[in-house]
């Protein structure tokens, strides 16, 4: 992500994040041997680099700064949601409601900024609060009442979408220049959404590697009962992750609303949940819980972003594009699976 603004795609991201994210190797000494070792441990990284190479050779403009910026900005919202969702999946849960939460977040932010003339900060905080509320409902139902996360969040996907459309039946637009800052401003040459995504990625990686709660996330995902008997609060940690996922989805919604300067309740974030989940799973997070890394998620996000962008650059007809996308996903997953596996 960081790299997209600078140059030859994701390789510089490697050294920055590897030692933090590969959870069995937190020792800083490990980052010396990146290069080939990283490729061997992360087949998806090799696939990604190959894809970038192919796109650059065929289009000639894939690695242009402008295009990389575009990819990075597109992938940013995906990454913001993918990281907390990945943690949630590692702890053995799932959130399918993020697409609707994203819409709700964008609408609340837009409504506060446009109709209520609130400051951008208040608008964003309002969106985050809405996202936290959705996450908390998910969390209470799944973690404290023990309902199936699949069913609960699938239900919330529809319910929150309905709520969003009921509250904001008409499209919102014209949020003002203050709010445009969130999606449009640049700090040190980096777009704000990308910066936010990097912040989320680093926070996620540090959380997993360096905090006790990060260990608990894995423990709960691997063996919830054993974690409970080890005295770990097996409800609060995933609950917090549900809230974090809701907040992140709402933040992504606010970013998208700011970038587009408009939100439509019915279509904003439709299908987003599956895209994020795809990125997360492609990044090596097991749906069964207990394994995964933030670096992997970053790769998954970049893979999707580059694929989409490259196919558009190549001007591939729509339905061929869909076929190519599906095939590339399966191929990516297969390579990641049959290639030399990272030791779990």
């Amino acid at each position: 992500m960081t790299t997209a603004t600078k140059g030859p795609a994701p390789s510089p991201a490697g050294p920055a994040t590897t030692p933090l994210t590969s959870r069995r190797l937190p020792s800083p000494g490990a980052l010396a041997g990146t290069g080939l070792t990283a490729l061997r441990r992360r087949p998806l990284l090799a696939v990604l680099l190959l894809m970038v190479l192919v796109f650059q050779l065929t289009t000639g403009s894939f690695l242009d700064t402008g295009n990389l910026r575009g990819i990075a900005t597109d992938a940013a919202t995906l990454a913001v949601v993918a990281v907390p969702l990945a943690l949630l999946v590692i702890s053995g849960y799932l959130d399918l409601s993020v697409g609707s939460t994203l819409a709700l977040g964008g609408l609340v932010a837009g409504w506060l900024a446009a109709s209520q003339q609130q400051s951008p900060v208040v608008a964003v905080l309002g969106a985050l609060a809405a996202g936290a509320a959705v996450g908390a409902v998910n969390g209470v139902l799944c973690c404290y009442l023990g309902l199936s996360a699949f069913i609960v969040t699938l239900g919330m996907l529809t319910a929150v979408r309905g709520l969003a459309q009921q509250l904001f039946p008409l499209p919102l637009s014209g949020f003002g220049s203050g709010f445009a800052w969130l999606g449009g401003s640049r700090i040190a040459g980096i777009d704000a959404p990308v910066l936010i995504a990097v912040l989320v990625l680093v926070t996620g990686a540090l959380f997993l590697a360096l905090t006790p709660a990060g260990r608990h996330v894995f423990a709960i995902g691997v063996n919830r009962e054993a974690a409970h008997l080890s005295g770990i609060d097996v409800r609060r940690t995933p609950f917090t992750l549900f809230v974090a996922t809701g907040v992140a989805a709402a933040l992504a919604g606010a970013i998208k609303a700011s970038v587009l300067d408009s939100v439509v309740a019915g279509t904003s974030g439709a299908g987003f949940e599956l895209t994020v989940l795809t990125a997360v799973l492609l990044g090596g997070v097991a749906l069964t819980g207990g394994s995964g890394s933030v670096f992997g998620v970053l790769l998954g996000v970049l893979f999707l972003g580059c694929l989409q962008n490259g196919l558009t650059l190549l001007n591939v007809p729509t339905f061929w594009q869909q076929m190519a996308q599906g095939t590339a996903l399966v191929a990516g997953a297969a390579l990641a699976c049959f290639g030399p596996r990272q030791t779990r």
């Binding site: 403009s61 970038v259 408009s262 279509t267 974030g269 989409q308 558009t312 650059l313 007809p317 729509t318």
Partner: peptide, 20 residues
């Protein structure tokens, strides 16, 4: 000629087209 009916897709496709 790119498939897009919503603003998100419109934005990202247009960005890619503009890059080229």
């Amino acid at each position: 000629e790119e498939q897009a009916i919503d603003p998100d897709t419109g934005l990202s496709k247009s960005r890619a087209i503009l890059a080229k």
